[in-house]
């Protein structure tokens, strides 16, 4: 029998099955948390850091990766609080500067209104999310690729950089890669941010604390004066 735990997600009291992660619970209830290294069917990895959410009561809260954190009784989660959004935007800016040619990252930037990049673009082909490595090992039973070296030299490769004997050229690694998709359109090389999909009609709120508007894009919170939306309005 499934054990159900009760938790609070963006001000909503919800019931979820024990053993679920915060990310799974949030997606089940229709709240989107951005991810780059998570894929259903692969083991959670916690490396892209985009799925960070704030847990705990204000004042004692902390940021955790929702893809690895399992739900527990009485857990209070805020997926789009000021703290989360600030850090997430900075991460997206860093992603854009690392890998501006990825459509997935460009779309994320537009969604989160990241319109400038203050770093020199690197034009990397890989963000080391590890999806391909896990895809190969866990779904294709291939284990043809893995990580080599550490830190800034870390990269995905076959053992000893030799052509792999176990690789079946299935292409699963390319299929899941968020970085190697080409851009939706081609902004100039020196301009790393595309923002073609930027929603010029911005949502009325930047972030949400305990109560969240579930309209995406948000339209109507202003209509209801009684709603306690404790968030700062866009100037």
């Amino acid at each position: 029998m499934k054990i159900v735990v009760q938790m609070t997600l963006n001000g909503l009291r919800i019931d979820v099955d024990e053993g679920m992660t915060i990310l799974e619970a949030a997606r089940f209830y229709g709240m989107n948390i951005p991810t780059l290294c998570y894929l259903e069917g692969l083991s959670p990895y916690g490396a892209c850091r985009l799925c960070l959410v704030e847990i705990g009561m204000p004042g004692q809260s902390k940021l955790v990766t929702s893809c690895t954190y399992r739900v527990e009784e009485g857990l209070v989660v805020r997926t789009d609080s000021e703290w989360v959004i600030k850090r997430r935007k900075m991460l997206i800016e860093l992603y854009l500067a690392t890998c501006p040619s990825s459509k997935v990252i460009q779309d994320l930037a537009s969604k989160y209104h990241v319109t400038t990049v203050r770093f020199t673009p690197w034009h990397e082909d890989c963000i080391l999310c590890g999806l391909c490595v896990r895809m190969c090992a866990e779904q294709m039973q291939g284990k043809a690729i893995g990580f080599a070296h550490r830190g800034s030299n870390r990269r995905v490769t076959t053992p000893f950089d030799k052509e792999s004997e176990v690789c079946r050229l299935c292409g699963g690694c390319m299929y899941v890669c968020p970085a190697c998709q080409s851009r939706c359109q081609g902004p100039q090389e020196e301009q790393p941010v595309c923002n073609a999909c930027l929603n010029l009609q911005q949502p009325c709120l930047d972030y949400f604390e305990d109560k969240m508007c579930f309209m995406d894009p948000c339209v109507a919170c202003e209509l209801d004066a009684n709603r306690e939306v404790k968030a700062k309005r866009r100037p």
């Binding site: 916690g46 850091r49 860093l94 500067a97 080391l128 830190g151 800034s152 870390r154």
Partner: peptide, 21 residues
Amino acid sequence: LKSESCGKCFSCRVGIQRMLE
């Protein structure tokens, strides 16, 4: 720290390099 970071998580790997820049 840049040379000792394992490079698994994005914020440590890239963040330190960008700070160094």
